[in-house]
Design a protein around this nucleic acid. Structure first.
Lengths: 366, 366
DNA sequence: ACTTCTCACTTGTAAATACAACTTGGAGAA
DNA sequence: TTCTCCAAGTTGTATTTACAAGTGAGAAGT
């Protein structure tokens, strides 16, 4: 290594331990012996030993001596790791996103640390702190409750100031300055709504998640489409729900939902998960999809294509999005000075069987 | 803390930084100034600064000065974490296992570090080293290629000697001394084969993974059932494949597979994944399941229940198994002296539509 | 046989001194 | 104005000396 005396002793000691096959708790040479061997002062030897101790190679005990820490416990930190914080990960589109991230990180020789927040900001705090204290090289984060005030604001600002590389995916906190890799949720909301208008629907209601930015953006796209098609009062047909309370929604707001279904020919659902629950709900009450009511979702989850009535939805670039997020982070690590912009994937409609074409039906009838 | 001079300086410095509200990259007092303030020698001050540096409170730059590391970057390690090493994780039954692990760890205040080996022992080595060097409190590992010689033997033995808590799941290396949480694969293999015999099948072939213990055990169960039912030559009808080469199997061994299908009324598949690929293969060649050939799998993956011909299989206790693995590890951490035994889940047959009952058919014909 | 004590030996703390390596800003030159 | 270079200032390395604090084994006493 370097040509300082204490560094040469450090290297010498490592070789010595290896060549003598010393194992855990074997006694190492005393400071005095090392002084004699290398012809240096005790302070220099101590400097070397301190270094070895911080590298976990040896263990010093006052009054007793210096001991070797062999094998596993002495292993130095060799692999770099990246922290990934996601709201969920084992269902829906999350496995694909995380797989995308993992494949790129793995390719670049990084290990992955995964934490799940269950969409709870408190768990997000804990995950961030845990990641940082474990010395990750960078973070890939899906914000929890991105549309609500977040107690981690200071934490994120501090990370920004400290130059810790970070990429958001799916959504970003509006006040944050880190780049974000996501689908164009506004366009997605607009796309499915346009599709319904194109199929002759005019009485369209919608349900959106109130606590994340994706819900807000999909709502925004929905409204744009409605306004463009002259349905200015569409706002009244929007129901908001908290992502965590999906079950409560379908248990305690049945009348509200039924009223909505009765007064509409189509429902825009925040995502496929909600859309599928909605289809289940319709089935229970004898409402036929798409004959009585059309349903569209967003995300193109696996179940959307293989369920009873294949769902018309918007393709989420899950795996590619994950890969891109990882690449964006690695970019930040390798060239921190660059400006890193948001990356937005264009949505892509997946037309299946959950939307009825009212125009064709009308013509056939008349 | 202690009453050494340098420790009082350490404490003083922390208070100073807090009271002066110094933030990241703010300049700290120079060594000379600290000497003057505390009336001590420079070595003593340096000792204090070294301590502060190792605690990540300050950062020293030769020739430039000493700087404060405020906020996030100065955070000490507070949360304990557990390393989870799995072969795969985003498909099949793995998400459920990992979810089970995560929920228990989370409940107990542990963070989870996840690494994927893609069933490669080299990646297992890397993952183990990475985890250890990141200071995990324990490990939950699904062995890669558990039935083949493993280069990490020394590493695992060293972990055992060092008292690092570890739990295997799904399978364990035969030579290892750590507890394992798994399904009773032998019983599972026996169960599906018995089911086929019960349904009047006698010409039964099978395909098993050659590189992991689960494959060997399921094979063992299969053979037990065959012997019990007087099919002593069943061994000849067994095809072995390497888990990584499933695609090659179906691309390059078509004749072998077709021959097998022609000479059997039923096929026992190592797992659902293989069974589904086999059903696909049958479809391509116009072989009807279960009319022409019955197929059974093991694991009860999600697709097994929702595919074209719902698959008869054995329920894997995925989520509960994950929870149990985590609990077993936490047990080891809290009471290391206890003897920790393997935990084995009894298999449970899921009878669906991929098995034809030959007895009923025979009676109907006669 | 057992306990207690002492002493040699180990690492830890502290000081004074000297020089080395590096950074930074300001003086002076172009 | 801009550039170069140097000197002052800062942390890093190395030596020497001294004493403090803890360990462990053997001597001495019971």
């Amino acid at each position: 290594m370097e040509d300082y005396k204490y560094m040469t002793i450090v290297e010498w000691a490592k070789n010595y331990i290896a060549s003598e096959k010393l194992k855990t708790n074997d006694r190492f040479l005393t400071e005095k012996e090392l002084c004699a061997i290398h012809g240096v002062s005790r302070q220099t030897v101590r400097q070397a030993l301190m270094r070895l101790e911080s590298e976990n190679v040896i263990c010093r005990v006052r009054g007793s001596g210096t001991f070797v820490k062999g094998g596993v416990t002495a292993m130095p930190s060799l692999t770099k790791s990246i922290g990934v914080i996601s709201t969920y990960f084992s269902d829906y589109i999350f496995p694909y996103i995380v797989t995308g991230i993992e494949s790129v990180l793995n390719e670049s020789g990084y290990a992955m640390q995964l934490a799940i927040t269950h969409n709870q900001v408190a768990e997000e705090t804990q995950a961030l702190r845990s990641m940082i204290s474990h010395g990750v090289q960078g973070l890939i984060v899906e914000p929890s409750k991105s549309a609500l005030p977040n107690p981690n604001t200071d934490l994120y600002n501090e990370l920004k100031r400290s130059g810790v590389p970070l990429v958001f995916f799916n959504a970003k906190y509006p006040w944050s300055e880190f780049p974000c890799v996501s689908m164009d949720d506004e366009a997605a909301g607009k796309l499915v709504t346009d599709h319904l208008f194109d199929n002759g629907h005019s009485k369209i209601s919608a349900i959106f998640a109130l606590d994340n930015i994706q819900g807000h953006k999909r709502y925004s796209g929905f409204m744009q489409s409605c306004l463009a098609h002259g349905a200015a009062d569409a706002e009244k047909n929007v129901l908001w729900f908290s992502a965590a309370e999906k079950k409560q929604l379908f248990r305690f707001c049945k009348e509200r939902l039924l009223e909505m279904l009765m007064n509409s020919t189509a429902v825009v659902c925040y995502n496929d998960d909600l859309a599928l629950t909605m289809m289940q709900f319709c089935k229970e009450y004898g409402i036929n999809v798409p004959e009585d009511v059309s349903i569209v979702g967003v995300d193109d989850s696996k179940i959307a294509s293989i369920c009873d009535i294949p769902l018309t939805t918007v393709a989420h670039p899950h795996r590619r999005l994950g890969e891109m997020a990882a690449r964006c982070l690695l970019d930040q690590i390798s060239s921190p000075q660059n400006e890193h912009k948001d990356i937005i994937f264009a949505p892509d409609l997946k037309s299946r069987n959950s939307v009825k074409n009212l125009r064709i039906t009308e013509k056939a009838v008349s």
